[in-house]
Design a protein around this nucleic acid. Structure first.
Lengths: 339, 339
DNA sequence: TTGAAAGCGCTAACAA
DNA sequence: TTGTTAGCGCTTTCAA
């Protein structure tokens, strides 16, 4: 039923070896034989058995991506776009993409172990690096190639693509300060997440650069969801002297903050300025449209994937580590301080 | 370097066969041998070579999921949650998940072909069925097991889980009518998508049931994105006699419609009612919180995945086809008609 | 330019 | 209860 090399060999009167060589376009095979073999192969509808190939070649032509799913109702537009970027690039380079979804924690590492020990994949794309990242340790120990979207702490070295969150948040603070804001709050995710660390650092440095004092009561921790943006913004707005601007560290939390402000009758962009980070497609059509920092997730996914495949193939990387400058997109959610 | 059965055989003095049988817990192996083999195996850090197993067993223990990515900036929270549901269930049942991302169209079918012809997966999860669905044809022809999230046209039969969109939209229309709305508009995706077809049908039937006339000028086509919700809502609001309520066929478009209304100074839930469908997590924390229909995507992903694995294992399904009743979640985006 | 034969690591039919 | 042997479909020496 399923066509194998053997069938083609029988049909053409050649040996299995010759057929294999012809199909793999070896130089030593005569062009007549090649043509014959190819014709018969396509007539019979031959497709190689990839497991036989993989067993023989001891590789998998597959890359692994383990998506950290926060919460039971995991629904982050961030990952859709990244996944599309990784997936499409992998396909175009002839690689399969094995995806696993795990909540961060113990079981997450098991997923990596089962993929590495079972040699199911040739390498990994690692997303959303963390300060003390067991995944990085695990992969470095196992010697598996991987490329991360995100950096680690200074002393740990690996190939990555990352956006310069520090720079990004600085430009946001600068922007808000230039609009006259002096009490600027920040809703940041736990600094356990490296990107959050860098963004928060940018927020603090940004304040210093424009000559504003950092006020700890204006820095709250969120969990990246719209809900937590809403909750933390409410806390900020309840302060005796509330901020006139809120810089959220991602768009989703910014949306939540906007809802909280609007619920109190504030006009966002006038009474209060709120900014995000990521520029997810929704940011353009929210009310008001969101001032945020653009992150080209689809492209980043592609870059990371391509770097990984180079690594897997033993090729050297043009750049081991890339830091992208996010672009500030000014929309109507930020505006002049009302005097 | 890599430990194989051979190594364990050498170490224990048993044959490769016995070792294999011991590790696979065959009855006929003496418990002493089993224990010995297991001990040595774990001492040596043995893990089976899955490709050898798959070559031998002629199966893959892998299921395929091809995500249709609409547009270059694919960012649909819908799929994140579904993916998590499928992925987690697959993992817990011992299956790998091979994901491919393709824009609907010609290349999409290629992805299915390469997965089927290469026998890379044991079966497929099919998402977002379409009226004339080349994927269904392709899979039915190839005889590959698959389970869909979504139905096809009446004459085509396959296992699926789906939400009853017709019922859902009827309850929405009923709800809006009970609030006094008479001019109710609908923003629906192209009826090419089966779920859109059912939802639109529910909208129309719902109008009839409450004794309202359907007005074609109040039914516009969107593409599921926030942007198109925004654009279509603007068209509706520009009508000489604009609707007092808009039922969008998904949450994202509802958000876009809300933005459009708010931009004109309308208070959503008072001056105009706007509803969605899906109840993505954002719906709860938007401004105003969105009246919508809940779809348990995570659970649906799990169900579909589990059904597929039953099918792959040749087990019979408890239910071949499941239709879920979506629950209406009433929030503040819908309210009494202003007189 | 081609073919025979070995082997990738595993499972399973058959024999002992 | 265990071992021998064959074979899954492929690639790759080695020899002709």
């Amino acid at each position: 039923m399923v066509v194998t090399l053997k069938d083609i060999a029988k049909e053409t009167g050649k040996s299995i070896t010759t057929v294999s060589r012809a199909l793999n376009d070896y130089d030593e095979v005569s062009s007549a034989t090649k043509e014959l073999v190819h014709r018969v192969a396509s007539e019979l509808g031959y497709t190689p058995n990839i497991f036989a190939q993989r067993l023989q070649k001891q590789n998998t032509d597959t890359i692994g991506l383990i998506i950290p799913t926060y919460g039971p109702r995991f629904s982050d537009p961030f990952f859709s776009e990244l996944l599309a970027g990784v997936g499409n690039r992998a396909a175009s380079l002839g690689y399969d993409l094995l995806v696993s979804t795990r909540a961060p924690g113990d079981y997450e590492i098991e997923a990596y172990c089962s993929m590495t020990q079972g040699r199911r994949v040739d390498g990994f794309v690692l997303v959303r690096t963390r300060r003390k990242d067991a995944r990085v340790e695990c992969l470095q120990k196992s010697g598996y190639p991987f490329v991360a979207f995100g950096r680690a702490e200074e002393n740990i070295n690996f190939p990555f693509v990352d956006e310069d969150g520090t720079y990004g948040m600085k430009t946001v603070v600068e922007h808000l300060a230039s609009l006259g804001h002096q009490r600027i709050a920040c809703i940041a995710p736990s600094s356990e997440l490296m990107f959050a660390h860098y963004r928060l650092q940018g927020f603090i440095e940004g304040l210093a650069e424009v000559g504003l004092e950092a006020d700890d009561s204006l820095i709250l921790i969120g969990d990246l969801t719209q809900r937590s943006g809403y909750e933390q913004a409410n806390k900020l707005l309840d302060l005796p002297s509330p901020p006139t601007a809120i810089a959220a560290c991602n768009d989703l939390m910014a949306f939540g903050a906007i809802s909280a402000a609007q619920e109190r009758g504030l006009v966002v962009g006038k009474d209060i300025s709120i900014t995000g980070f990521d520029n997810i497609p929704m940011a353009e059509y929210s009310h008001p449209p969101l001032t945020t920092l653009h992150q080209p997730l689809y492209q980043i996914g592609g870059m990371v994937c391509e770097m990984l495949i180079h690594l897997i193939r033993g090729e050297s990387l043009e750049r081991e580590q890339t830091l992208l400058k996010p672009e500030l997109i000014i929309r109507q959610s930020s505006g002049l301080l009302r005097s």
